[in-house]
Design a protein around this nucleic acid. Structure first.
Lengths: 123, 123
DNA sequence: CGGTATCCCAGGCGATACTG
DNA sequence: CAGTATCGCCTGGGATACCG
């Protein structure tokens, strides 16, 4: 138990980013939140494929990291609003650069995949 | 089997990015490759925690996406070099922005975590 | 050196049901 | 509406062994 599998690098910042962004939904949620504050189920509809459990989990993680804030309004059926914190906003600027890259390079990536698959389809 | 769990959004670019970057190692490898071309085992040592299998897998994925190129040199024990493609380079510029963000905001994130954990340690 | 194959576990994530 | 609890699948990924 020497934490062998845990000794990436002493303080690798990329690792830090990965630990909170490298999952199926975090970035997507952050990106969604850039527009405005969103309520739980609304967010759930917007992201679609996500389940309540995972949305809840991811939101909690993001909240814990200080990227998202949660506001509860004591209305009748209870309203909860999620929004980016200032820190979260600074991150989403970078995230949007990533999204922008994807938009600009989707075709190149797909072409590369097709070429790769065509070159070695059997293996 | 209507691919219910697969209908995120028609062509969500963030999803595209996530599908290739949202794993434990891809970003780290990309970041390492920014410096220069690296051989398999050398890369393995640099990244450390990673296993051959996963390094191989991730490299293949990256190669398939046209982000990394693989050069084989018919030397005695065989030398294989991995380097970023021009496309890969354009991505790592964004990736480095992410890394930079992490470097600048690690403290804020850790502070937020401490505050969060301190506020609700029992649950 | 640079992989591939196999085994296996942890946990991410989805589906469903239930609560306040 | 906004979650939490439970269950179970599937896959990411680590360990080990083997191959060219």
């Amino acid at each position: 138990m020497d934490r062998i599998y845990n000794v990436y690098e002493d303080r690798c910042p990329t690792r830090l980013v990965l630990d909170r962004l490298a999952d199926k939904w975090a970035l997507l949620i952050l990106d969604r939140l850039r527009e405005d504050a969103v309520r739980f189920n609304h967010l759930r509809r917007e992201i679609k494929g996500i389940s309540q459990k995972v949305l809840s989990q991811t939101l909690k993680k993001l909240e814990r990291d200080g990227l998202v804030s949660r506001s509860v309004f004591p209305t009748v059926p209870v309203t909860v609003e999620y929004r980016l914190t200032p820190l979260g906003h600074t991150l989403t600027e970078t995230v949007s650069a990533l999204t922008h890259w994807a938009e600009s390079n989707m075709d190149a990536v797909f072409a590369a995949q097709a070429a790769y698959d065509g070159a070695s389809p059997a293996g």
